[in-house]
Design a protein around this nucleic acid. Sequence first.
DNA 1: AAGCGATATGAAATCGATTTCAAAAAAATA
DNA 2: TATTTTTTTGAAATCGATTTCATATCGCTT
Lengths: 344, 344
Amino acid sequence: MGKMVTIYDIAREAGVSPATVSRMLTGNAKVSEEKRKRITELIRAYDYKPNALAKGLRETKSRVIGMILVDFVNPFYATLLSSCEKEARKRGYSLIVTSTLGDRELEDAYLDTMCQQRVATIVMVGGRSDELAPDEGYVGHVKRIAESVPVVTNGYLGGAEGCRVRLDEEKAAELAVEYLRDLGHREIAFIGGKGEIRSTVEKRLKYAQLLMQNGLPTRKEWIVDGPGYDDKSGYEAMRKLLALPCRPTAVIAVNDFTAAGAAHAIWEEGLGIPEDFSLVSFDDTYVSNLCRPRLTSVSYDLEEFASRLIGSAVDIAHGRKIEQNQVVEPKLVVRDSCKQYGGG
Amino acid sequence: MGKMVTIYDIAREAGVSPATVSRMLTGNAKVSEEKRKRITELIRAYDYKPNALAKGLRETKSRVIGMILVDFVNPFYATLLSSCEKEARKRGYSLIVTSTLGDRELEDAYLDTMCQQRVATIVMVGGRSDELAPDEGYVGHVKRIAESVPVVTNGYLGGAEGCRVRLDEEKAAELAVEYLRDLGHREIAFIGGKGEIRSTVEKRLKYAQLLMQNGLPTRKEWIVDGPGYDDKSGYEAMRKLLALPCRPTAVIAVNDFTAAGAAHAIWEEGLGIPEDFSLVSFDDTYVSNLCRPRLTSVSYDLEEFASRLIGSAVDIAHGRKIEQNQVVEPKLVVRDSCKQYGGG
DNA sequence: AAGCGATATGAAATCGATTTCAAAAAAATA
DNA sequence: TATTTTTTTGAAATCGATTTCATATCGCTT
């Protein structure tokens, strides 16, 4: 690769000092109109590209945000990533990304890598910080990292420098349960996923609590956790529900994939949605539009989520004051997978 | 943020020169066992994290690969991204990513940004380089960029330094057409998407050519381009096919989303898959498993694609010789969306 | 014990941009 | 016009790691 042209080359050609060129580029000080013109011209002519590494070194941090997600393929995260990238770009930042697929060691390793990369901020969504009870080791690790790089997460921050932007999972559960209740359903099941992920646990707990508060029947068998978070997991969970002597009339599934899987199990049984079962999912990804009938789903505004995550990340990097605790509220998107119980 | 500890700090504490610490870290030269121990100990104790910016500056390039994709949300690219990230990590590289959503200016801007970031290589999949006839301006831009940073792409490289890893779209079309032909179908339609995207054009051309070669009827109305690449686009395209006086018996859709949309149009008409229409899609994302019936789809091994893209990117960065032109072959994944024509 | 090559080490230059500090030039004031 | 104030500018230090080159240290040979 040909040597790249540097600020020195430009300065020499323009007959000024590198400092002057730098000042022009950053706008940190005035430069006489005459030199300004000459320099601008040369920059164009030589196709000069400022070296971000040198700049980052000098300023002890880069204009890059490190983003750690559980999974790029899941459309919820894919959409979030897409929005985050747009937000970052808008603010003049780039995104270094990694997906951990739940691998703890990897998460640790990548926190480290990003630290070495001297990213301005680390944004972490899902993963260990999002478990119900992150272990001691993890908390310490994040804390240690956060001594060098601020962290923005939707999960547990543990007093580290940074901020938290969480999704209101309880409100989400409430929207689902109350919608079904208002439709006249009394027998409502809940399909969860693997592990004690905070988002799942919070929904499940709220679901159970709301059934009680509303005087609806609660049954242990109506809370089923599949082996994962994909359609197969939902399928298996629904099969268990279908095998029950006392079937529910409505099902809440922890995400669109599990809901789609549940739908397949229902069809396989020769039953229909919403005729025989009403179905509500969470996340409102494009999958809920791809299913027939289209799934009624609880939706988070991912643009808002992204804007808060990246906005906070950038604000922290620039030493601005930010809200330590932010919450994104869900809303219900009604489609075709539910109907009035007993009614038309 | 607290100052980070540097190689100087470690050196001072260990009573050696920074050079020695560096040599130990990089392994570029021998260091006596005694100092080695002392240094290792201190690095642990101080939680020293080498500054990748400084390293990159010194070595005039970073261990980061810049990745430009059209769209993170599309599961084809999401999966590719996921695989690429894994491949990069395996080789000690990080990924800076951006999605252009087809915006040309953005693509140009981001080529620039990554250049400034001094990424080791730029990997570009989809987007302008992947158009059938990239315009002069674009070709020049890539060429100029490629003078500073090598480029790996699935599309047009235009003699720039780098390499090309393409998907064999023609073979993919062949697998689809021949499969349907072997099932006895003679009336086969093709649903494309918006614009003259190379991948689409190549498939469509091959499809048309194969119909001729096989003596199957060809009709202009059987080639329909939707307004995009999503399910709605496929839906609209299929409605046009359904409105035809002479309907085809099989449909090839340019990706899983358009296929899913086409399926909905078919159901809406009260018809069934595969009873009334056989349906083959491309890409074989999880969407083809999410549909009922599951879609028969032409699949690319994205792990191989990713491995070739990132492998080449890293090899080029290290000045190793690489194959200038690589091809990834597709295979057909048979599921439940096709059946013998006329037969059982 | 003197001389030789092989190793381990340190001092200093380097990568490219920013910034401090001081000097020079320009503008404003007396 | 002389003097002060303000604005532009350049020289040099800095960010943190790597590497070249020279020197010190060691073991080995004769």
